[in-house]
Design a binder for these strands. Structure first.
Lengths: 104, 104
DNA sequence: GGAATTGATCTAATAAAGCATATCAACCCG
DNA sequence: CGGGTTGATATGCTTTATTAGATCAATTCC
């Protein structure tokens, strides 16, 4: 067990998954988010607890947002996300990439 | 315009609103979250960009969670929260207080 | 084999959060 | 008026994120 002082494991997993889905290396992400690659690595391996605004930057370039949701609604929101991942591809909602794409 | 270096304004508004809904003073919240009152004030006035884990602590004692949601789904999630605020009071979901209560 | 990429690690320095504590103006209430 | 509460602010100090830069093992590709 490596020592985790940083973000919750599942949150990190989602971030890493999103990065992989875009086929970005840590250096790619670092450049777009304006952070050093070493810092990305530290965050993804749970060695630091980043500032909230740092995390916002990361999430933003990956097409995410950080939302404050009432605990009672968490399951609902999670399944909403899960569902949209399954079938909701042809959204053309904003100027953002589909995400969740495994194969291009 | 005071200088905001901290959290997004709407997120702060939600935190403050939640605290007010519970009728908690900054000192009440500080005690429960294990933070100094001065720090709560600094966060709520946007003078600091708290660490992620600090924000998690705050959100937790206020009955919230921080979720990473795809940008395309943000409006849906927000309206989901808004709707449940209107009619969804008698949930008795978990061991948590109803929240969003204006008058006791 | 050699070049290039990827992710982790190190050093060293700076900036900023975090903590403890105290103070202060504004307010309400008896 | 005097006392209590609330939120903002100040100081001094410790801890930690953040940065720039380089390096390194493992992997992939030619």
């Amino acid at each position: 067990m490596p020592k985790r002082i940083g973000l919750p494991a599942d949150l990190v997993r989602n971030l890493v998954a999103a990065r992989h889905a875009r086929q970005w290396s840590q250096r790619d992400l670092a450049e777009r988010a304006g952070l050093p690659q070493a810092h990305i690595s530290a965050i993804e391996t749970g060695k630091v607890a980043p500032r909230f605004d740092t995390l916002i930057d990361l999430a933003r370039v990956l097409g995410f947002d950080l939302l404050l949701v009432p605990r009672a609604l968490v399951p609902a929101v999670q399944s909403l996300i899960r569902d949209s991942r399954r079938s909701g591809d042809g959204e053309a909602d904003e100027g953002e990439r589909p995400l969740y794409a495994d194969e291009p």
